[in-house]
């Protein structure tokens, strides 16, 4: 894999080796997941007592049993809820973080270094110690048991990670482009919309993907703020199968975990192309 790390190989036999290496690497990396997928087709009793990862027969009962929980709520609800929260979080992050990032990357304003350090500082405090005070804020606002605590803060750029990400990317964009626009009479707002945003596509796509995955997988926040099973998300739904003090349905959990990877996989497959094309189509060359 190290030898394959060169940007472009020209001889066809190298290419063949590259594919072989990539496939071998993928199989190695995916072994745990393949085990999980195999187990999702096994009857409950066999999962932990039978070591062979390959199921003896294709048994879909874990999928059927897992999709609709005994309580009558199904993963259809969980998926819809997850997608709603993810969509809100993505829009919020794209909007608020790009604005803040542009200010930090390009505009000279008072107290910028202090605010920038503050922004980074918010990344450094472990969230466990601000959970309780935050809960009290949202509870006072009457937002518990709703999606609001999971979405609204994103519109106010609380995910400093993405601000930082975009700052780094904006700083990689040549200044001359903006200077030219300003010579043409564009103001800051116009420059941001017309020059920076289009060039920022790869970072925006990255933000979209990460926001989606992190929100989709976030367990603690969703657990804390959502009380009713009808408001539960996929991440919470998956934990419904596990109970350290009673019956855990591991087969159903593996089945639903396998399924839960599909949307993220598809979204990734779709967006990664954009990631590649993003910068190329803007015609920026040096």
């Amino acid at each position: 894999m190290v030898t394959a790390a060169r940007p472009r190989t020209k001889k066809p036999n190298y290419r063949w080796m590259l594919h072989a290496g990539l496939i071998a690497g993928a199989v190695l990396m995916l072994y745990p997941l393949l085990w999980m997928i195999g187990s999702s087709f096994k009857p409950e009793g066999q999962i932990f007592s039978d070591l062979n990862p390959i199921p003896t027969s294709l048994d879909f009962s874990n999928y059927i049993k897992g999709w609709t929980l005994g309580t009558g709520v199904s993963f259809t609800t969980f998926y819809l809820n997850s997608f709603m929260i993810c969509a809100g979080a993505i829009v919020g992050n794209l909007f608020s973080c790009s604005l803040a990032a542009y200010a930090f990357a390009r505009i000279n304003f008072k107290f910028k270094p202090v605010l920038f350090a503050l922004m980074l500082g918010t990344l450094m405090l472990p969230f466990h110690v601000i959970v309780v005070p935050q809960y009290i804020i949202f509870n006072t606002l009457g937002w518990t048991n709703s999606f609001l605590p999971l979405i609204v803060p994103k519109f106010f750029a609380v995910d400093a990670f993405f601000i930082f990400l975009m700052v780094q990317f904006i700083r990689g964009i040549p200044v001359e482009l903006e200077q030219a626009a300003m010579v043409d009479g564009c103001n800051r707002g116009q420059t941001f919309l017309l020059i920076i945003l289009p060039l920022l596509t790869p970072a925006l796509v990255t933000t979209t993907i990460f926001t989606f995955i992190w929100t989709y997988n976030d367990f603690f926040g969703q657990l804390l703020y959502l009380n009713n099973e009808r408001k539960y998300t996929v991440a919470l739904g998956l934990r419904q199968f596990l109970d350290a003090s009673g019956q855990s349905s591991w087969g159903a959990m593996f089945a639903m975990t396998t399924l839960s990877l599909l949307p993220v996989f598809v979204i990734f497959l779709f967006f990664q192309k954009r990631l590649v094309d993003g910068i190329a189509t803007t015609g920026l060359k040096g």
Partner: peptide, 23 residues
């Protein structure tokens, strides 16, 4: 530049004040 800077930063500042600073 100051005005533009704070205009762009407005959502972040509001978020800091309301959701982050207190906790």
């Amino acid at each position: 530049d100051n005005a533009w800077g704070y205009l762009f930063l407005a959502p972040w500042i509001i978020g800091m004040v309301f959701f982050m600073a207190g906790p």
